[in-house]
Amino acid sequence: MNKLLVGLLFGAILGAADGATAWFYPEVRTMMQSILIGSTVKGMVVGVLCGWFARKVNSITWGIVAGAALGLLFAFLVAAMGEPGQHHYLEIMFPGFVVGAIIGFLTQRLGEPAARQNA
């Protein structure tokens, strides 16, 4: 499996799992479906970008840093999309930051690196 696919797969799984934790917040249970879809898509986008990064840079540390930064960025964008006065920045960005780091780690650790091309 190549790293893009690893990123896509784990991004979807972790994104969905992260979104599912919204169930613990009764006030947003009515929006569970859209939260799940949004979180899954966010995870997939972060995963693909992390997978692309992992093909370019072979470093666990930098993979985690890049994943965390991407997770934070996309979590911010998702949080900013909320209704005025209902921006759950803290609740979305903190976990998104860590989920991004996990995806960054996994794309470094798993998957085939891009084939080297001869000059």
């Binding site: 934790t21 666990i60 985690i64 860590v98």
Partner: peptide
């Protein structure tokens, strides 16, 4: 490293 990251996620939650 993975376990540490998962623990960090749980702690944040």
């Amino acid at each position: 490293v993975l376990l540490l990251l998962l623990a960090a996620y749980l702690a944040v939650r």
